[in-house]
Simulated assay, not measured.
Amino acid sequence: MNFLDSEFLQTMLLTFKLAFYTTLLLLPIGIALAVLLDSLHSRLGIILQAFIWMPLILPPSVLGFYLLVFFNRNNPLGVFLLEHFSLQLAFSFAGLVVASVIFSLPFMVNPIKNALSSLPPSLKEASYTLGKGRISTFIFVLLPNIKSSILLGCVTSFAHTIGEFGVVMMIGGSRAGETKVASIAIYEQVETLNYTLAHQYALTLFVVSFVSLCVIFALAHRYAKAHIL
């Protein structure tokens, strides 16, 4: 196997680039939604949480299909984005990022929301007593106490994005250097009976996924141990 092949390196670089941008965008979005969910105790909160969990239930091809319909240049939303922002999301890297953010949303939001919910109310009250406002309390008191869960959400989102297939296939297709990520490349190489290159992609994703899981379990163990202590 030749891991220095230009096509292989280009595809893997694009795959990691997609996962990095997705995780970077998901971090502030995930924290904001986690805070919102933690503060909502009504039907609105239930509906919002259901929408966030939908990517875990829906087949990826379903989500990818509707994103393709909405972002298509023949759709009003696609026309609006193209005319006012010169942004074409269908069959583009930008579209892959948007789709990946939506698809990996629960992997970022859920651990952060659960961690916020598990914090004792006395922590927040003590901060208020010391004269800190809501924003400073959140940034300097609450966030440091859930950093393991935030890191867990980042690692999980990154790993999940790397393994996407159905969503990226529907919204991005297979444009070399722009939308062709590793999962798509594996499918194409198997179709052409090029098992050597397919194995090269698959082995790389296998190693990355295994290392990611080791990091996730280590973080989960550390989080549990910290709470026991």
Rank of each mutant, 00 (worst) to 15 (best):
A32G: 06
A32K: 01
A32L: 13
A34I: 04
A34Q: 04
L37T: 04
L37C: 06
L37D: 04
L37W: 06
D38M: 04
S39L: 10
S39W: 05
S39E: 10
H41Q: 15
H41F: 10
H41W: 06
S42N: 15
S42Y: 03
S42T: 14
R43Y: 07
R43W: 13
G45S: 11
I46P: 00
I46L: 14
I47V: 14
I47M: 10
I47E: 01
L48F: 11
L48M: 13
Q49W: 02
A50P: 00
A50V: 01
A50H: 01
F51A: 12
F51R: 01
I52W: 02
I52P: 00
W53E: 12
W53S: 10
W53A: 12
M54Y: 08
M54K: 00
P55L: 13
I57N: 01
P59N: 15
P60N: 12
S61P: 00
V62R: 13
L63Q: 12
G64S: 05
G64M: 09
G64T: 10
G64V: 06
G64N: 05
F65E: 03
F65I: 08
F65G: 06
Y66S: 05
L67H: 11
L67Q: 12
V69Q: 15
V69H: 13
F70P: 00
F70W: 14
N72T: 12
R73L: 13
R73T: 11
N74D: 14
N75L: 05
N75V: 08
L77P: 00
F80L: 14
L82C: 02
L82R: 12
L82D: 13
L82F: 12
E83I: 05
E83N: 11
E83S: 09
E83R: 12
H84V: 05
F85D: 01
F85L: 14
L87F: 04
L87A: 08
L87E: 06
L87W: 07
Q88G: 08
L89Q: 11
L89E: 12
A90N: 09
A90L: 10
F91S: 05
F91V: 02
F93K: 07
F93I: 09
F93V: 06
A94L: 08
G95H: 10
V97P: 01
V97C: 09
V98N: 01
V98Q: 03
V101M: 09
L105T: 04
L105R: 10
L105D: 10
P106D: 07
P106Y: 05
F107T: 05
F107V: 07
F107E: 03
M108R: 03
V109K: 03
N110G: 00
P111W: 08
I112H: 05
N114D: 13
L116F: 04
L116H: 06
L116N: 07
S117G: 09
S117D: 15
S118L: 15
L119T: 08
L119Y: 07
P121Y: 15
P121H: 15
S122Q: 15
L123D: 01
K124M: 04
K124R: 14
E125Q: 14
